[in-house]
Amino acid sequence: MFELRLVQGSLLKKVLESIKDLVNDANFDCSSTGFSLQAMDSSHVALVALLLRSEGFEHYRCDRNLTMGMNLANMAKMLKCAGNDDIITIKADDGTDTVTFMFESPSQDKISDFEMKLMDIDSEHLGIPEAEYEAIIRMPSAEFARICRDLSSIGDTVVISVTKEGVRFSARGDIGAANIVCRQNATVDKPEDATIIEMQEPVTLTFALRYMNSFTKATPLAEQVTISMSSDLPVVVEYKVAGMGYIRYYLAPKIEE
């Protein structure tokens, strides 16, 4: 059997909100390592990888590896029924085609359980090798979300360019053009407000803003976002999940025709 219990259930609600618009159906892999997922969007332009390590849960039991295929919109509907302060338990028995979500209020005076049908999903799992990135940007996640939102009112694509001067986000469209430059700023009162740019080589890549905006749905999960870029590689946009793991989004670049 498989069972996990998360006292800070709101984390799981936020995780679902960060992936449900990008991916319709996905296989969750349950193993002794943790609860994980890898899925591509329907056009195979972006990929999301989630890992929530078993040690991060208050209780985690996985007798044998299990894959649970779920419709993420339906899963999100069920998790929306959990209160923000609720403790969430996910349970699945071997050989059944359902998963149970149990929500307990902090004072234990309300306990709900929701049963959801699992699905058989034929999904391709990609091997993503570890890579040394030419440029790594760490910045406040809210700032990155703001930049993506602002630039999408100007154009459909963003050019991200990292140089010694900083990181430049540019967009161009029918009404005009926009450039936003963020410089390294490590001398802030709070570390979550810092912008840190590690650059081995200058790098410039172009990406569809529609996907970037979808990634920023993960902003409530983490104060900081990490953007890793190399020429001719997908960008990796990573949000940490409160000491338990991460959500990483991979986005293939656009190239000149």
Binding site: M40, L126, T157, Y250, E257
Partner: peptide, 14 residues
């Protein structure tokens, strides 16, 4: 503008 590449062009099936 530009051609959108696919993620499967970069990473192999595992």
């Amino acid at each position: 503008p530009g051609v959108q590449l696919s993620i499967t062009e970069f990473y192999r099936s595992s």
